[in-house]
Design a protein around this nucleic acid. Structure first.
Length: 608
DNA sequence: ACCAGCACTTAGGAGCGTCCCG
DNA sequence: CGGGACGCTCCTAAGTGCTGGT
């Protein structure tokens, strides 16, 4: 417990820096924060110490305030106009609202794309009156300039709000969170993840999405299904409205749902990641992955021998499993053509996505992958594979066109059915979790306890990064990346100069001390001071150099996704305990909340 | 036995608040 | 104390995988 008390102090550092406070006030504030922390700790639901519910039951009591709706559309002021073909046109309310959606996005690349413009224009015309529709026939003749300018001015004004205005806004938002942001679940107050209904707007798909630009309609209370206990107070719909349905289904975790008009899929309001419902599921996920650890050797030898099967579908399954295991590819469910961007996973790979090289870069049997995966993120990799896999791939490619399926006799459902027969609960995605977590554990085992804190954290981040690379978690390089790297480098250079200066100063002082005899007290302390200065300088330089390395290596890699979804938090918590580091060196507040179960239960000797 | 529908996890980017430096 | 960099939260799209109805 002492271990965590330390951490409380660290978080208060900003309180301590405020200079004008008296010592007493600082102490008071500190105590208050510690007290708040303790209270939070006290009120935290330690669900992981409780017995689990019977299968399928997610809760026994559920009460909430329903969803929070976005504000109604505010018509344009009279001095802001829309022009068609150079002439002022006063639009109907519905058409005007949709025009504003487009005008707001004019600075975005989306609005230059053909598909986006066409989809938008088609849906916009549906919102127009007959008269508007017969007039407005060409998007190119539409002038949204004034509306766009108005929007930009609004954004600017929001930025320039006074402190008081910002404070008032913050308080108003807090009030909304207080009212709608929490629910009561089995006697415990739990935070809701997304309690706000998604506002209307233009659909922004990722990649080359065929539906980009379509109108995402405003959700009405009449579209909403409420889920809560029979005994609970049913949330009140906005005045003059009613819910589509109120149901009492305790086999699901959602509080509110509605059907979205772009894909026709269902959207949900669910609990926050720090809730029991989410936490328990997360814990379970890692337990399944740990179970895989104990039988992965058998499974591997099985799929290796399946590579020789007489059955084509078995051989395809074996190769797919080899990829999923070795490369942490996603399963790759079939997708409806024309409904989404053209992306693939393992089972849906096409001939055009791989190239075989008998020899490449001095290696034998290399498979070159190049395809768009989830979120249209490119997966590019050149991987040496075992001969049997290579020969099989060659066979699968025979007599096929680029657009044909590589694994034409394989579906994720078959694959998962097979996997679950090998181990209960085993599916394709478990391999990602397993390989991610085991990689982290192996890598951070190599970190030496005698390293400095900064070095330990760099090594930890590197291990995290290895996982992110495995899972292909990318990000767009920050817009200011090159510039901020240059700034950091010049700081490093400046520090180097300073260090050289400090060193020569120390030398000088030593010389003088020697000349005048070591008995001279003043000179001795001067030497000591200079020594300390050199040391401090060296430490700061090292820290900056580590930071530079870390940042450079992280340019296009996103660490958050693997940290949040793939790495068993108990591995990291145990490592922190071993290294004598507080967990908040690696987890921020919301991550600590999400992983509270792991932080609480993990012992030093935890093994994934 | 199949598959559409449903429930839930995983994902990157936008935007906002905070911190740090000059 | 103003401005830029950065980290965090919010947002919602895009996956996975199960199931229940036919």
């Amino acid at each position: 417990m002492l271990f965590f008390a330390q951490k409380v102090k660290c978080e208060d550092s900003n309180e301590c820096k405020k200079p004008k406070r008296t010592k007493g006030e600082i102490e008071e504030a500190r105590q208050l924060k510690i007290k708040k922390k303790e209270e939070e700790e006290q009120s935290r639901w330690r669900w992981w110490e409780e017995e689990k519910y019977e299968d399928g039951v997610k809760w026994r009591f559920l009460e909430h305030s329903g969803p929070y709706f976005p504000p109604e559309y505010q018509p344009l002021p009279d001095n802001v106009h829309f022009y068609y073909d150079g002439k002022k046109v006063k639009l109907s309310l519905a058409a005007e609202e949709v025009a504003l959606f487009f005008a707001q996005m004019l600075d975005h690349e989306y609005t230059t794309k053909k598909v986006f413009r066409e989809n938008f224009f088609k849906d916009w015309r549906k919102e127009m009156t007959d008269a508007e529709r017969s007039l407005i026939q060409d998007l190119g003749k539409c002038d949204f300039g004034e509306i766009h300018a108005m929007h930009k001015a609004k954004v600017e004004a929001r930025k320039n709000m006074t402190k008081e205005e910002k404070q008032a806004l913050k308080e108003a938002n807090q009030k909304i969170v207080d009212e709608f942001g929490y629910c009561l679940l089995d006697h415990h107050r739990e935070r809701i993840g997304n309690f706000k209904i998604e506002p209307p707007g233009l659909f922004r798909g990722r990649g080359e999405h065929p539906k980009q630009g379509m109108l995402k309609k405003r959700i009405q209370p009449e579209d909403i299904i409420i889920n809560c206990s029979k005994e609970a107070c049913i949330p009140v719909p906005p005045a003059g409205h009613r819910w589509k349905e109120v149901r009492h289904d305790n086999t699901v975790t959602w509080l509110v749902s509605w059907t979205e008009n772009i894909q026709g899929s269902i959207k949900y309001i669910m609990l926050n990641a720090n809730s029991k419902l989410k936490g328990e599921k997360d814990w379970e996920k890692y337990e399944v992955a740990r179970k895989l650890k104990s039988c992965v050797d058998n499974i591997r030898s099985q799929y290796r021998s399946d590579l020789k099967s007489r059955q084509m579908s078995t051989r395809q399954r074996a190769v797919a499993l080899y990829f999923i295991d070795k490369l942490a590819l996603r399963a790759g469910n079939e997708k409806e053509e024309g409904e989404t961007a053209d992306t693939v996973g393992c089972c849906s790979l096409r001939v055009e996505h791989i190239t075989l090289h008998e020899q490449m870069d001095g290696k034998e049997y290399v498979v070159e992958f190049d395809f768009l995966g989830k979120d249209s993120i490119r997966y590019y990799n050149k991987v040496p594979v075992i001969k049997k896999v290579f020969k099989n791939l060659k066979l699968f490619l025979e007599n096929k066109q680029p657009g044909d399926e590589l694994f034409d006799r394989l579906y994720t459902s078959m694959l998962n059915k097979h996997l679950s027969s090998l181990m209960p609960g085993l599916t394709a995605k478990v391999f990602r979790t397993y390989n991610a977590s085991i990689t982290l554990q192996e890598q951070i085992k190599l970190i030496t306890i005698s390293d400095s804190v900064a070095e330990k954290l760099l090594s930890y981040n590197r291990a995290n990064r290895a996982v992110a690379i495995l899972c292909n978690h990318q990000r767009a390089p920050p817009k200011t990346f090159d510039q901020s790297m240059a700034t950091l480098q010049s700081k490093i250079d400046a520090r180097k100069e300073q260090l050289a200066l400090a060193k020569s100063g120390l030398k000088q002082a030593k010389k003088e001390a020697k000349a005048k005899g070591s008995s001279e007290f003043k000179l001795q302390t001067l030497v000591e001071r200079k020594k300390a200065a050199v040391k401090r300088c060296e430490e700061q330089l090292l820290k900056m150099e580590i930071q530079a390395t870390d940042r450079e290596e992280n340019k296009q890699i996103a660490l958050g996704t693997s940290k949040l979804n793939y790495l068993d938090p108990r591995i990291s918590v145990a490592w922190c305990k071993n290294m004598g580091l507080p967990v908040d060196k690696i987890y921020n507040k919301s991550q600590r909340d999400k992983f509270a179960w792991a932080i609480d239960m993990t012992e030093v000797d935890f093994e994934f």
